[in-house]
Design a protein around this nucleic acid. Structure first.
Length: 848
RNA sequence: GCCCGGGUGGCGAAAUCGGCAGACGCACAGGACUUAAAAUCCUGAGACCCUUGGGUCGUGCGGGUUCAAGUCCCGCCCCGGGCACCA
């Protein structure tokens, strides 16, 4: 018969709730531990067993840390604004706020029956005005800031030096607008007609996978100047205890590259055409130039004969998204008819346009070196452009430059003019030499470029944070001040897109047409809203001080909880590697620049839990019918079984399939735990006694305490569970079970299986929660054994074993080994060549 | 193509520093209890050879270092994830 989990689990959940067992204390004299899950987006679909895996892990750590004397902040909230809810609203006609409420209620019910010990008094919901007031406030901080390159930090826009030649107030304001960290721009965007909104570059793939069509359009958009922080976002990765793969991905995303900017000039007009290259040493091999089709100089360079072809090509590329431009393997392009002068060789080289050159990277134009760049090589072959070798392999071997580009480092050849020669120089030195020459001649400088682009921050949607900016009908705009926030999302019954590429807010008269009470001017609010990612950029800070109405977070509380370089542990899926985690770091750095937060980084340690697959080893999905619902598991086997099994399945970071028989095994284990302490009817077991544990029992107990402690700290929960199983196996065998040992064991088990641990703790006669007890310490002396089994080898093969006193020395062990019949047998008639002795491990005789 | 992970029994997986490969669990087999079954408890088990004792092989593949390699080095293969015209 199974232990009565169905009664005792809700009982203890209610007890914790009533007694505030999981509340965070305000006692800042205690050492703190700030541990967080990535908060969920509450969809209507509900959870499958994969979702709470990370939550269970953090709950175990949170409970363990509390028992270890830490003041633990372990909160939960909801990322509640976003597209899926709005789409659902459009389908059902139910207001997104109502849908959100329902989804959250269902979600909370599902996670509370698992016994997760969140401090719900700190719950935050990003779509609530008292939360997004501060999201908007941070936005105004971006709007009212510029980035000072000299000190590498954000400063108030009023402190921006205005160039003298700007006289009128309009000109000055235009200049300020061009420097603001939140700015409006006409951007080619990823427009999705079906969704009625634009998408961030980072989001495009996700929606395409779902079958949506995304096209290129020029639209007025809000942008955040994240690129000004590229270098800091890159550098500060060093401070973080994150998975290396995640750091690598962010590095690649930021994509720093060192090189040079070289100014070519148009033949005839002398118009400068700067290019960015990481291989300035190959400039002698630049046999043509390519501009992005959108490049500003295309018009002036194009000759009349070529104009028609150029315009046709430009129209073709305009319609394509970035992804489509990179789809085709074959390179396309058109000759402009114009020529430029290669500043190193003085040669006249043709200027082409081609969509393999991207307008937004570097200068939007390149010097093409087909001998030493694969893309240029392919293009040159396609259109019969000259290919010249200017770098040779270091060993001077021959290279078929017409057949294939030589792209690695080598030594310079054919690279000489009257002033400079790179011939014979290894690539790194050649780069230096040419850089010197370029700077000297004023035709080039060293440059660093980043792949990362500014963050497209507006969405043409209703269900998001309103952007707290008003535009005056007679020109100009202002951000709302803190007393005017939150700018509440107006309640509408029609949340269909305006159909004009504008958000539903454009249809709300009171939103777009009013008198600004501060200035008396006619004005309208921005009709775009913020993207899904906005609310999650700073929510961790709000947990620290969730009910503060005068600041987003009290500075003293912030310093206490963020001490040690940020949140102590942040757990969530790796799918957020380059979006949420990069955006949140960016926002944090702005707040840091103003002294609102005390750490450079928000998340000191990060951990990604793996995925749980269906029993068929495929991703759980409704369509495959392999979804396992945690509600069913809790009903049939209990929350504790679910918790312990999810931890026992394997390493937390791994992807692993669900196994029904596996959880039954864990359920059996918990039943064994129950019977270790209690009779079938719930009375205290007759086999428990107040006796001193034997040395062997002590050894098992203290090994268990040690292992569980270490494994929780290193997040190796699976092996901690295995060790607890060993404990139960050992003590189940015993006729008489020392009460003391059993109690200590229950304390170890408590973070994993809190309900059964509480119940057995009270059966043992204790009043009050088991979680008020300190986590047991292990005694190293109890782990010392008198004897140890060692291996006896002959020629490195195990031939026998012997039990010897611990730390027995070589001569003792050698004597024992020599007396061993198996060892003797294998050494018979052979000569001893060598003896190898490893303390407490082995004795190895090498014979011939 | 490039950058990260990973490959260990029938299955999920263990294995600080190079030192007994396969802990723990699942599934399986045998036994005890039972009229019987379920539940529970006990026992067994990497593969192959073998009469017992035992022997041989074995951590994706091929080499190497070492008294000793899942672990270190070199070269491959396969799987998962990410990036991919970024000059």
């Amino acid at each position: 018969m199974a232990y009565p989990f169905q009664e005792l689990e809700p009982k203890w959940q209610q007890y914790w709730e009533e007694h505030g067992t999981n509340r965070t204390s305000d006692d800042t004299s205690l050492p703190k531990f700030f541990i967080m899950d990535m908060f969920p987006y509450p969809s209507g679909a509900g959870l499958h067993v994969g979702h709470p895996e990370g939550y269970i892990a953090t709950d175990i750590i949170a409970r363990y840390k509390r028992m270890s004397g830490f003041n633990v902040l372990y909160p939960m909230g909801f990322d509640a604004f976003g597209l899926p809810t709005e789409r659902n609203a459009m389908k059902t006609g139910i207001h997104p706020a109502v849908i959100t409420q329902q989804s959250i209620a269902n979600f909370k019910r599902q996670i509370s029956i698992i016994g997760l010990g969140y401090d719900w008094s700190r719950e935050i919901i990003t779509s609530e005005p008292r939360y997004y007031k501060w999201t908007q406030w941070i936005f105004t901080l971006f709007f009212n800031s510029w980035f000072d390159d000299d000190v590498q930090k954000a400063r108030p826009i009023e402190e921006l030096p205005i160039p003298d030649h700007l006289a009128t107030e309009e000109e000055k304001e235009e200049y300020r607008d061009s420097k603001r960290l939140a700015y409006v721009a006409n951007m080619p965007v990823n427009w999705c007609e079906a969704l009625g909104t634009v998408l961030a570059n980072e989001e495009v793939d996700e929606w395409r996978e779902k079958g949506y069509t995304v096209e290129r359009r020029l639209m007025r958009q809000w942008m955040l100047r994240i690129t000004t922080y590229s270098q800091r976002l890159l550098d500060d990765l060093e401070l973080l205890d994150w998975p290396t793969s995640t750091k690598e991905m962010q590095k690649n995303w930021i994509g720093r590259s060192e090189g040079a900017e070289i100014t070519f000039r148009a033949d005839g007009t002398g118009e400068p055409i700067p290019v960015f290259t990481t291989r300035p040493d190959t400039v002698f091999g630049a046999t043509y130039m390519v501009l992005a089709p959108e490049h500003a100089l295309v018009d002036t360079l194009t000759t009349d004969e070529q104009r028609e072809a150029v315009q046709k090509y430009r129209r073709q590329t305009e319609a394509k998204t970035d992804i489509e431009r990179t789809d085709g393997k074959e390179k396309t392009g058109v000759f402009t008819g114009g020529y430029a002068i290669n500043p190193a060789t003085g040669e006249r080289i043709p200027v082409w346009i081609a969509d393999y050159v991207l307008a937004h990277y570097g200068t939007g134009s390149i010097m093409a070196v087909p001998g030493h760049d694969e893309r240029d090589h392919a293009f040159a072959v396609q259109y019969g452009l000259p290919i010249r070798q200017v770098v040779a392999p270091a060993d001077n071997s021959a290279w078929d430059i017409i057949g294939e580009a030589f792209t690695t480092d080598g030594v310079g050849v054919n690279s000489e003019n009257t002033e400079v020669s790179l011939n014979g120089l290894p690539t790194p030195e050649a780069k230096d030499r040419i850089a010197h020459w370029l700077v000297e001649k004023g035709i080039g400088t060293k440059r660093i470029r980043y792949k990362q682009r500014d963050w497209l921050f507006s969405r043409q949607r209703y269900w998001g944070e309103p952007i707290p900016i008003m535009f005056y009908k007679d020109g100009g705009k202002r951000s709302l001040t803190i007393d005017e926030l939150p700018l509440e999302l107006p309640h509408v019954s029609d949340f269909m897109p305006a159909g004009t590429g504008e958000s539903p807010l454009a249809k709300v008269e009171s939103w777009t047409n009013f008198i600004d009470p501060k200035t008396g001017r006619e004005a309208g609010f921005e009709t775009n809203t913020m993207p899904q990612w906005a609310g999650s950029c700073w929510y961790y800070l709000r947990y620290i001080d969730p009910h503060n109405d005068t600041a987003f977070c009290d500075p003293d509380k912030e310093r206490y909880w963020m001490d040690g370089g940020g949140i102590d542990l942040y757990v969530g899926g790796s799918e957020h590697t380059v979006l949420h985690l990069l955006y949140a770091r960016f926002w944090h750095k702005l707040l840091y620049d103003y002294g609102y937060v005390s750490t450079k980084e928000p998340f000191h340690k990060l951990f990604h839990q793996g995925m749980i697959l269906g029993e068929d080893s495929r991703k759980m999905s409704k369509s495959l019918g392999n979804v396992v619902n945690p509600d069913d598991i809790v009903t049939e086997l209990g929350a504790d079984s679910l918790r312990v099994f999810e931890m026992f399945m394997g390493p937390l970071e791994m992807t692993k399939p669900w196994a029904t028989t596996g959880i039954e095994g864990v359920h059996r284990f918990l039943n064994r735990v129950w019977r270790l302490v209690a009779e079938e009817d719930g009375a205290l077991s007759q086999q428990l006694a107040d006796v001193e544990p034997t040395p062997e029992q002590y050894f098992v107990l203290h090994s268990t305490i040690k292992k569980v402690r270490e494994d929780i700290e290193s997040m190796s929960f699976n092996t901690a569970v295995a060790q607890m199983m060993i404990f139960v196996n050992e003590f189940t065998k015993e006729e008489t079970r020392p009460r003391k040992a059993i109690e200590q064991f229950l304390l170890c088990l408590a973070p994993f299986a809190p309900h059964i641990a509480e119940e057995l703790w009270s059966i043992l006669g204790h009043s009050g929660s088991i979680f008020l007890q300190p986590f047991p310490a292990f005694d190293p002396e109890k782990l010392v054994q008198n004897d140890v089994e060692i291996v006896l080898q002959v020629n490195s093969k195990v031939r026998s074993r012997a039990v010897v006193p611990i730390d027995a020395d070589e001569s003792t062990v050698e004597r024992i080994a020599m007396d061993d019949p198996q060892v003797q047998k294998h050494m018979e008639g052979k000569t001893l060549r060598k003896k190898i002795f490893v303390l407490n491990k082995l004795m190895n005789f090498i014979v011939s």
